[in-house]
Write a protein that binds this DNA or RNA. Structure first.
Lengths: 146, 146
DNA sequence: CCTTCTTTGACTTTTACTGACTTTTGTTTA
DNA sequence: TAAACAAAAGTCAGTAAAAGTCAAAGAAGG
């Protein structure tokens, strides 16, 4: 299994991120391309295939003079946490039904919302969101009791 | 972290605004240009690209002798947009009730969620979120009809 | 083979910066 | 007081320096 250039660039960037203070680096595409003696679009390729949101990275960039590419790894890396949190919220919603704090119809609707409603929200925000929804539901059902 | 001149001027102005009493400053374009050793139109460029209304700033200026550029940051640029969008979603939810697609209780719960549930989500995400919720609710109620 | 991943390069778009020229406004002077 | 002057700020187009896009060719793996 020979390492492709893309693999090497990927590894290089990951080392940079590891060494950085905030899990965040800023590079210049053209500069990096020169380091590896390849065309700049090769770097773009690496970024698009290896540093995706799904893999736990956020990227930003700016064109033009003094342009840059910023790559940040977010700490609650990934899926696991997201799914966990979504599950936690779903469990909470199930408990509400068990406690008769919500009706069966409401329960059905809420589950649907949680599962399908938050597709486009970045992972980082999603956790906050789930917590917020949980809080809101809690105080709502409390309030409704009286 | 290579900062462009425009970035530096932007930051400089923002610090001035932060230190000001009313989130408002008055500068002289030519003076600032001299400080940064650039042409005055560079300052105009920064103001036009970084201190726009969309980003929460209002600018005024006067030419000629005793000329000036005034930059003011207004409290919550987002509010207007946010509220508008939230309202759109609330209107949609109200319509669902009118169409009998949801019950009164569901309606009540959804309104509460929208109003109280998404407090900590950044504005930028919030709009996407509202759209997502609207979409989810739409398909949910469609599906439930059958 | 066939498919998928990599690499390349020509072309596009965005952003920064500059300088010549214009417009506006206050001040001075005839 | 009207005209000239000076001192601002605005406009705009041009240049350069990035990064992005996309399709096509090439390589690797099954």
């Amino acid at each position: 299994m020979k390492k492709s250039l893309a693999d090497k660039i990927e590894q290089y960037i990951k080392v940079l991120i590891d060494r950085s203070s905030e899990h965040k680096i800023e590079i210049q595409r053209s500069e990096l391309a020169e380091t590896f003696r390849c065309v700049p679009s090769q770097v773009t390729y690496v970024i698009n295939t290896r540093f995706t949101e799904k893999k736990g990275y956020l990227t930003e960039s700016r064109r033009g003079g003094k342009g840059f590419v910023r790559i940040a790894r977010f700490q609650d890396n990934s899926n696991l946490n997201e799914i966990l949190n979504k599950n936690e919220l779903l469990v909470f919603i199930d408990e509400l039904l068990e406690k008769r704090a919500i009706t069966k119809k409401e329960h059905e609707m809420l589950r649907y919302l949680v599962i399908h409603g938050f597709k486009d929200i970045p992972v980082k925000e999603k956790n906050k969101l789930f917590a917020a929804v949980r809080y809101a539901l809690d105080s709502f059902t409390q309030a409704r009791k009286h």
